[in-house]
Amino acid sequence: MREYTYTEKKDTRSGFGLGLLEIGRLNPDVVALCADLTGSLNMGAFRDEFPNRFFQVGIAEANMMGLAAGLTIGGKIPFTGTFANFSTGRVYDQIRQSIAYSNKNVKICASHAGITLGEDGATHQILEDIGMMRMLPHMTVVVPCDHNQTKAATLAVANYPGPVYLRFGRPKVPNFTDPSQPFEIGKAIILSEGSDASIFATGHLVWEAIEAGRELYKKGISAEIINIHTIKPLDIKSIIQSVSKTGCAVTAEEHQMNGGLGDAVSQVLAVSHPAPLELVAVNDRFGESGKPAELMKKYGLDASNIVQAVMRVLKRK
């Protein structure tokens, strides 16, 4: 088990804010739009440095998606910013017609995804967004795991043509990835090689997977831990390679089982390489108010749940 450490916990959304500012400096065609959540999305620095390229649209997300589609006409690269709930479900048809079907170069940047949004409760805790976005033809879906990787992903999506959904969160999570590591869309990252079971994790559950791997190692189980930061296009080759070696897999994500990473990996394995699989995800229910760590525990998404899922899947080999 390869060891990972971190010096501090940081929120992924501030990684987005830094990335947006940096890409704004590098590329004058980058513009940003926000629906009254500039502070929450950390878009203030971009706004202050590039006031002419920042559009405050008010609480009007449908309009924001249309505006973004229109801004691409003439060569702009719009980044929209609002919570994940308002970035997807609220504006699904706008994204579908004006952005995805029209294949517009819009970067939909979604913060506060999942139950770890916390106290605001289920109205704001979207757990269906990955599913909705990965169902759309032309759409790319990126879910970085920590602050550094979110910054790198923000830079990478700007240079990746076509519509992209970039999902990140609210809470401070361990910041452990190498800030100098370039972000390659569609290429899974093997964090630790192993031989007994593959753990495919996305978002901040990658850290939970690392902690689970450590626990499993103590039990004499060798887990291969892979960061699936791009849900679509999925790195099918890396998934099959890993499962060919380990013979079973666990997926981990802060999302519904329906439609998420687990669903995507199930499809790959069922079609190309049948093997036992267990899913760590929310099982067909809405979230609720609470502190992020409490919710992760209650909804079965933390490291101990990943350990249990690995123990279950090993028995099915």
Partner: peptide
């Protein structure tokens, strides 16, 4: 309902 938003974006561009 979507065209005017797109047109506004194109006009800003």
């Amino acid at each position: 309902g979507q065209g005017l938003s797109v047109a506004c974006g194109a006009a800003l561009s």
